[in-house]
Design a binder for these strands. Structure first.
Length: 644
DNA sequence: ACACTAAACTTTTTT
DNA sequence: AGTTTAGTGT
């Protein structure tokens, strides 16, 4: 059964007495190697299934690994510990009796917003979404440095609130678990002894907290097998630390590094482009991906507008599907707002497609609204869910909620308790709300969540037009169906951690369309016969957003390109009717067939980070020199170095 | 005091 | 697409 592995893969599978860092280039059979390694360990009786811990980055990757292990072993996989860092940590926390409400990004922002209003801070200066992501960044970095005093206060109150709400955000799931391990030697040793082999997928995307967790599991006797590719590290914005992979061989001794460099996915031509681009990066271990597959030359296309681009892509897809119905096709972009125009044209062209990511099932308003009642019944201290549910109950407005908040501060308690003290006649509606939640709590104890959801819908939402629209109604039905036969704990976990929309996967389902629309981030780990990477403009890819780092943007480009098996189309447009654009610098780095790609054209508008918008009056290539008339700052000469 | 509506604005990427 | 805001209506 191990005959189908190449020499490097075989080495990676068979070496079990050392820690291993497997540098797995795109399409080099990473998942295959990991799953065969698990099979090898079991066949040779090196460990029992429950002594293997496999940590993945996404639920999709966990599901795929489960499937493939089950396939090659031909047994049930119930005994394996395969899952995301977050899902497994939560599960272990539950095993020791720790239960929390999980705050997703949205809940987090609501909490931050409450704190900002409470502190009377300027809402424009402190945007909840920015503050929330900054909080996560701080938690993920080792040194706690706050930009301002106000920020430090927000952060402190935020952490206190999580504690008093009996809630955890995504980061805290891991932090809480690490705390438990640190404070309880017996518990830690149990885990260390149990997990003889720890496999970590996508190691390049682990952050400091995840790294710390791995350290807690490691006792020097068990073995860590980390698989990763520094060139595919694209989650720095979420705290991923590329140094984890770069310094693996110092952290876990004895250690061996194995590189998987043979690519089984893409044609030579496609790989050439990927290799050419990525060699511009300095932060890398370095590898040389190669392929035996020959194929056609990738296509680079310029369009006047994004509409022209969408038209061309749609037309091309139509042709591809006419030639071979079974081909898989993907249109990939840097950010989700680029998808809309493709959806429009796909409709016009009659192309069936699926859009991945973007709007998650559990982020939908109707779902969150109903869920907030279950959450407040599950955990009275959950102030975020309190505010959402009471606001939807009907007959209770902002003024009343404000009164409750004030009482909660006075009594130093949560909103639910504060609301329970209101017995005056004018607060009769509040009393009814409290009563309703208590009934719900009784029903929840009974265990049938589906029925509880239906109860909430019937009592609170069924007479409101918004929730009676067909799409929302069917989403609600789906939620009720989803909850069937689930216990409250796993329901809560699934609702918070699982991206339900991504799990409706087309691979085994022939009735779903073969054309996918998604961000490059969402496409990571996937492959398609034909790939279109669109919107390859400066300012889109690379994004040139505030903290965007050019090497990471280049890796995103690299990940996109290496999704393609047979054909690859790279395209950009010059205008989207609001702004004008120039082609991505990454296209210039390729320079296929001496393709004439000018980054700058006379007469174009550019957007400079310091000087704002301006019109290009003159362009000199080699060395690059731009004469630009900026709207605010007037005439400037820019050289290569001060352009970005 | 609250419900409802229309218009404006928000967003890189996500466990 | 969802949330916020301002304005109107009950």
């Amino acid at each position: 059964m191990f005959d189908s592995l190449n020499d490097q893969q075989k080495k990676a599978v068979e070496i079990c007495d050392k820690n291993l860092l497997i540098i797995a280039g795109a399409g080099s059979g990473k998942t295959k190697t990991l799953t065969y390694k698990i099979a090898y360990i079991l066949k040779n009786n090196l460990a029992k299934p429950w002594e293997i811990l496999a940590l993945t980055f996404t639920n999709k990757a966990a599901d795929e690994m489960k499937d493939r292990v089950a396939n090659i072993l031909d047994t049930s996989i119930d005994n394996f510990y395969i899952g995301t860092f977050h899902a497994l940590s939560l599960r272990f926390l539950r095993q020791i009796g720790k239960k929390y409400t999980i705050y997703d990004k949205h809940d987090q922002e609501m909490l931050v917003k409450e704190i900002i209003t409470y502190l009377n801070l300027d809402k424009n200066k402190f945007q909840p979404s920015k503050v929330a992501s900054y909080i996560s960044k701080i938690k993920n970095s080792s040194n706690l440095e706050f930009p301002t005093k106000e920020f430090e206060r927000i952060y402190k109150i935020y952490e206190e609130k999580l504690e008093s709400n009996n809630a955890v955000d995504f980061d805290n799931i891991l932090i809480k678990f690490i705390e438990e391990l640190k404070n309880n030697d017996k518990l830690r040793q149990n885990f260390q002894n149990q997990f003889k082999f720890i496999l970590i997928d996508e190691y390049q995307d682990t952050n400091n907290i995840q790294y710390e967790l791995i350290k807690e599991f490691y006792n020097g006797d068990n073995r860590i097998f980390a698989v990763g590719d520094e060139d595919q590290s694209i989650y720095a914005f979420r705290g991923a630390n590329i140094n984890n992979i770069l310094s693996f061989s110092n952290d876990f001794l004895p250690c061996e590094i194995i590189k998987l460099e043979k690519n089984y996915r893409s044609t030579k031509n496609i790989l050439n482009i990927a290799n050419t681009i990525i060699t511009h990066n300095k932060t890398r271990i370095g590898k040389n991906l190669y392929s035996d597959i020959s194929g056609v030359e990738p296509v680079i296309k310029e369009f006047a507008t994004n509409k022209d681009e969408a038209y061309f892509v749609s037309n091309q897809i139509k042709n591809i599907l006419m030639q071979n119905d079974n081909s898989s096709v993907a249109v990939l972009y840097r950010n989700n707002n680029l998808s809309r125009i493709f959806e429009e044209y796909f409709m016009q062209f009659g192309i069936a497609y699926k859009k991945i990511g973007a709007h998650k099932f559990f982020d939908k308003k109707e779902i969150k609204d109903i869920l907030s009642f279950i959450k407040i019944a599950y955990n009275e201290k959950d102030d975020v869910s309190f505010i959402r549910s009471i606001g939807n109950f009907g007959g209770i407005g902002l003024k009343t909620i404000d009164d409750i908040k004030k009482i909660a501060i006075d009594l130093n308690t949560n909103l639910f308790i504060a609301a329970s003290t209101l017995t005056q006649k004018k607060y009769a509606k509040v009393a009814r709300f409290i009563e309703f939640v208590k009934i719900l709590q009784k029903k929840l104890e009974f265990g049938n969540i589906s029925e509880c959801l239906k109860f909430v819908f019937d009592e609170v939402f069924s007479d409101k037009n918004f929730y009676r629209q067909d799409i929302r109604q069917s989403n609600i039905d789906e939620l009720i169906e989803f909850a069937k036969n689930m216990d409250i704990e796993s329901f809560m976990e699934n609702a918070s951690l699982y991206d339900y929309s991504q799990s409706i996967d087309g691979e085994n389902n022939l009735s779903l369309p073969n054309v996918s629309l998604m961000t490059i981030h969402a496409a990571k780990g996937l492959e398609f016969d034909h790939v279109f990477i669109v919107g390859l403009n400066e300012g889109i890819l690379p994004s040139l957003y505030q903290d965007s780092v050019i090497e990471e943007e280049r890796r995103i480009m690299y990940v996109g390109i290496t999704r393609a098996k047979k054909t690859l189309y790279l395209s950009y447009y010059l205008s989207d009717f609001h702004n004008s654009f120039i082609p991505s610098r990454f296209l210039k780095e390729i320079a296929v067939n001496k393709t004439q790609l000018k980054r700058y054209r006379i007469g174009e508008t550019i957007n400079h980070k310091d000087f704002g918008k301006g019109i290009i009056l003159n362009v000199k290539e080699k060395p690059l020199e731009l004469k630009v008339n900026f709207f605010k700052y007037g005439l400037k000469i820019l050289t290569e170095n001060d352009i970005f």
